[in-house]
């Protein structure tokens, strides 16, 4: 290389290529993303975090939680499950219908102990024949899309997380390390406010052998006044304060927990299909309108 121009040209070409690839194109593709519709319920997703939870995101960032906790669920595959809900009035004809499509299912266990999954197929289209055959003889089936992978088996999420899940976060913290469990869905996994507060104050009191440091800096230890505070932590054993004292969460602790409880990314989206768990049954009791 003889001249400095060549050096700068080389550097410019290489760097502008990757800049275009990993800065410009993502901005064009994802930078203007807005709420999308979930499938099939057509709810708007995601919703922006409100008040306390939004402040909690700042506490999460400030404490550097991201260095031990990821906020993204991985997925290794996906399966389509055919769930037989009801074999209909004439069970044997249903079995015959099933056997016509899937000969290997021609055994009495197939239609006992319902509802149960009777087959896994390659994709939705592959389930059509079975669905048609069963419904024709009066049976009922459901076809479910179930993402698979170790994170999902651990209960960290229902599906993989995608760009859409993060559009309203300012500091997006997907994390790259799991010294602690993933938190992408902690709001639905561990939705108990008191559990979360106790766990922050003394992790070992909630999870035996936990290696998480205690975040006592988020709590205030104070002398019990005339009346004990209503929001004092209910602690037992080693982590309990000495008699006459109580442990009260500070605003930061409340914000952080509000944020943790708001973490949830399992809405079914086009780019990450999943069959949502059955919605809570519609209210059955006639709520007296008095």
């Amino acid at each position: 290389m003889k001249s400095s121009n060549t050096i700068f040209l080389a550097a410019f070409i290489a760097l502008s290529a990757s800049w275009a690839g990993f800065v410009l194109v993502p901005q064009i593709q994802l930078g203007r993303a807005d709420q999308a519709k979930t499938i099939p319920a057509e709810d708007k997703y995601p919703l922006a975090r409100a008040g306390l939870a939004a402040q909690g995101a700042e506490v999460y960032r400030s404490l550097g939680c991201v260095y031990c906790h990821s906020q993204q669920v991985g997925q290794q595959g996906v399966k389509v499950e055919v769930l037989l809900l009801d074999a209909g009035t004439n069970a044997s004809s249903t079995l015959a219908a099933i056997a016509k499509v899937h000969p290997e299912l021609n055994k009495p266990e197939t239609i006992t102990g319902l509802p149960k999954e009777i087959a896994y197929v390659a994709d939705i289209a592959a389930s059509d024949a079975l669905v048609k055959a069963v419904t024709a003889v009066g049976g009922k089936v459901e076809v479910n899309v179930i993402p698979t992978g170790s994170d999902i088996s651990r209960g960290w999420g229902k599906r993989r997380t995608v760009a859409q899940d993060y559009i309203f976060d300012h500091v997006v913290q997907p994390g790259t390390r799991r010294a602690g469990p993933d938190l992408a869905n902690v709001g639905s996994r561990l939705a108990d406010l008191n559990w979360q507060l106790n766990h922050l104050y003394a992790p070992k009191s909630m999870v035996k052998d936990s290696t998480m440091p205690a975040y006592r800096i988020l709590f205030e230890k104070r002398k019990i006044g005339k009346v004990a505070s209503a929001d004092a932590l209910k602690l037992t054993g080693d982590s309990a304060p000495p008699p006459g004292f109580e442990i009260v969460p500070t605003d930061k602790a409340r914000e952080l927990v509000a944020y943790l409880l708001s973490l949830r990314s399992d809405a079914p989206l086009f780019e990450s299909p999943v069959t949502p768990p059955p919605a809570a049954a519609p209210a059955t009791n006639t709520v007296a309108a008095k």
Binding site: S18, W19, F22, V23, P26, Q27, L30, G31, R32, A33, A163, Q164, Y166, I167, F168, D169, H170, V171, V172, P174
Partner: peptide, 13 residues
């Protein structure tokens, strides 16, 4: 600040 995961992309880049 850019929106959503574009931040992650920029930060990782």
């Amino acid at each position: 600040p850019v929106r959503g995961v574009v931040q992650s992309s920029v930060a990782w880049w």
